[in-house]
Design a protein around this nucleic acid. Sequence first.
RNA 1: GCGCGCUUAGCUCAGUGGUAGAGCGCUUGCUUCACACGCAAGAAGUCACAGGUUCGAACCCUGUAGCGCGCACCA
Length: 1026
Amino acid sequence: MPEIEKTYEPAAVEPKWYEFWLQNGCFTADPARVSKQRPAYSIVIPPPNVTGVLTLGHVLNNTIQDILARRARMLGKEVLWLPGTDHAGIATQNVVEKTLRKEGVMKHRNDLGREALVAKIWEWREKYGGIILQQLRALGCSLDWSRTRFTMDEHYSHCVSRVFVDLYKKGLIYRGKRMVNWCPASLTALSDEEVVMKEQNGVLYYFKVEVVEEPGRFLTIATTRPETIPGDSAIAVNPNDPRYAGLIGKHARRPLPRENQAPLPIIGDDAVAFDFGTGVLKVTPAHDKADNEIGQRHNLPQIDIIHPNGVMNDLAGVDLAGLERFAARKRAVEVLTELGALEKEEPYKNSVGYSERADVPIEPRLSEQWFLKYPSVAEARACVAGVSGKVGVPPAGAGVSPDRNSGEASDAPAPGASNPQVREGETPSPAGGTPTLPEMRFFPDRWAKVYDHWMTGIQDWCISRQLWWGHRIPVWTMLWEGPLATSDSDSQIVRFDLPFLSEEQNRKIAVQVIRPGGAGGEIYFGIAVYPGNPEIEQLLEQRGAKQDPDVLDTWFSSWLWPFATMGWPEKTETLAKFYPTTDLVTGPDIIFFWVARMIMAGFEWMGEMPFRNVYFTGIIRDKQGRKMSKSLGNSPDPLDLIAKFGADALRFGVMRSAPLGADILFDEKNVELGRNFCTKLWNAARFRQMQSGAGVPPTGSGAGVPPVGSEAGVPPAQFEAEIDPALLTNDDQWILLRLDAAIREVSTVLDEYRFSDAAQALYRFFWSEYCDWYLEASKAVLVAPASPAATEAAPPADTRRNNTLAVMDFVLAHTLRLFHPFLPFITEELWQGMGFAQDLPANQGGKTIMFAPWPKPFTEDERAYFGLDESVERFAAAKFEVVNQGRALRRDGNIASNKRVRFILRPSTPLPAHEVAVLKLLLNADPLDLVEASWIPPRGTPAALTPLGDLFLPLEGLIDVAAERERLTKEIAKVTDELTKVRAKLANPNFTDKVPAAVLTEHRNREAAWADKLAQLQRMLDALGL
RNA sequence: GCGCGCUUAGCUCAGUGGUAGAGCGCUUGCUUCACACGCAAGAAGUCACAGGUUCGAACCCUGUAGCGCGCACCA
């Protein structure tokens, strides 16, 4: 084996192995390999925006997914981790338009026109769309690149159109003129989820209006938006408000526009609160959601006074027309003041909806849009573990039944097509009960409540966007002059064959009345066309039908991601084997945008939930707890971090500080810690390499790597060949026990998605236990073996040495595998470099550590075989106590840790020569003299009591007696305190009567131990002399 | 207003009823033949507060305060 270099160089190592994995198809999923013995495991990546670059959020999210995927492979599963990108409508169009404006290509999108702009965006996508995926490679992500998808791939786009038509036919999609969230910057409607509420320091303006029928009587109205007064069409009061009830039916003159101070009706509506403002409300049906509802109840005119871009139109009157809405507010206040109508203004805090993307206040606006009534809500709501409304789960696939033309829509794989994929250790349904539907689990589960709450109050989804980049709505609208085939004019869906289409073609469309008896009594049809029928589209356009110019909300395509990427609507093998996916890893900020909608889509078109488990990551913040943002300059570039510290270091650092359910405060120190840990791992391996030689196969040859699934009951042959249990030292046995504990702990916490706990357990095991204790103790065998006492039947040094190396190899081989999901690169480098891959079958790690089996805890038989029992731990703990005490003595005596000094041990139990050698080494003692029980130290000798006997540091004259006395006095105080506490407990009959026997025994032992210790400390203090 | 979460060492966080823990930072000593990205030893905590349950509470219950998040309202 080549000698391991002195320092680890991630920059040289990482690309090499990534290329190796790619060349060997290690990431490729093959549904044909899925079987009962080899269950499927799948994750679809939350597709990053195609314009995006890697952020720390992506690092967190994708490292978690990679850990899950890599571990699943090691557990013998067929793993599909499916990559891709999202076209991200508004975001992408904004980015590209901005660039084009900067480059002077255009001033406004209209300069280019729809087709040219879309072509430019495609160009952009070709050029930059793969960046983030390339960056994921640098992170080590084991994605199956052969399956990379994009939400605007031809096939994917067909899926989007198909589900649109399907929902349209089911009557769930409708067009309507409604109040929508309008973004005056992006000039498009937005969904409720794209609006974020922000608290504002605003002003509440009070102005008065005169009651027409009672001249001289004024009403005072409070408003935050005086610029909308010209759009008012009523004054509302609460009919139960004695102050104003008598005015209902009368009129008041609105002050603006000043050239048209129209009298408005005073109406009564329960929505008006008595105690807010003055109890009098101006009603602006065209520019406020609540006012719009009042307007509908009272049949008020809707006066639209604002252009789509936020500029006031002519109806706003001469004072305001042409002003931007906030300038208009200022002006309106001035005019009110001039008119003498303004009474007062007071500061006021309120929340205003902002456009998430453009970061400007949205404008509630009446607009004609497409809306969706969510499908499969009941199923989606009921399937999540821990939500309240989960009773009466309907059978899977019980969606709304299609009314006709069902042929094309229903050829998806049969509902319930399942695949055997159960997480290791997953508990089956409760025994004896009725079979329950499989549940989806959220981690942490508190998100289930949030999800349920949203699903309960769910509103129709505005799915049309006034953009060009996206999936164009597959609906053509035309004026219909013939008779209607249905008498029910309220019906949204009409059974109607277009005479200019063939019967066959008519089956590929759905017809909806858009404006029954529209403005001039005309009837408009919306004709939705299944994808892939250009000839129908052509015929429609020849007849004057126009395709809707809008595109669909990006999330209307994202919600199909789990199955549209796997070939739906064809019944692909991929779908059959890998759907539903096993885990979804995403941020809680898109639980409504994406997760909830995917669940509904999963039920609606696959008849099944899209994933079994959803892991919600925290949000990455800087170390002051602020969100990462470009403007703050607090978001480091992950690629810089990788260049500086290595991808493994970044992964480990982030994972170690990312507890389940909490935000992550990112600190480069954590990455440093990851880097340091890699170095530690590297050097521990290097130490092992430096020991090979005399009598050992030069490579260590993967010694002791046990076959996975070795049958219980038979001591594995490999163990016998490599590790002779008869030659195991206490340290060997101890580290095997610690390894076993680490395997158990890491496996358990990973099953619970507690990645930071796993990382910490690994860190602790390898650094504090393996390196700090075992590796140091092993030097007593490898570097400075004890010369056995004449009476002892010690094994030849070489034999014992080989055995220790075998134990080391065993532990390292397991450790590397435990670390692999977290640290894929360095573990592969060491696995190969140290020769662990040799002589192993390819599917057992012979080719790459990626397919080496995940370590298993010892069986009972293996524990017995290696002699691993409690006495091992006990003796090791006693030994460490001796060492700790000795080091403390050294410290008290101000003796440098590198200085060899004489220690004297008066053992309370016979010690094998080897153990004495270990103690000598760890104490850095020379010599370590053993004395008889009768030996009495000279007065003033610092001493420590240990479980293996009394330890002395004979340093006549060198010791600071006063300091030593102080230490002992302090120790005595502490022990006295503990002893008092435990005695007080034991003296309490309530305690002794009620406490469980085991706890009582434990307390009695504790009392004895403290008492013993106190007595000995006292003796030591006495021995120090005065 | 409703709901959720958090409050433990200087910082970030583990710790679900029985002797308060880790990493970082800090202090001291050490280039001891894997590693100074290291080794060793240390200092450091009224477990937010107040009640209650219990033999016993950081942990369970009730309440309070502060912080964070979500939802609703917002003339």
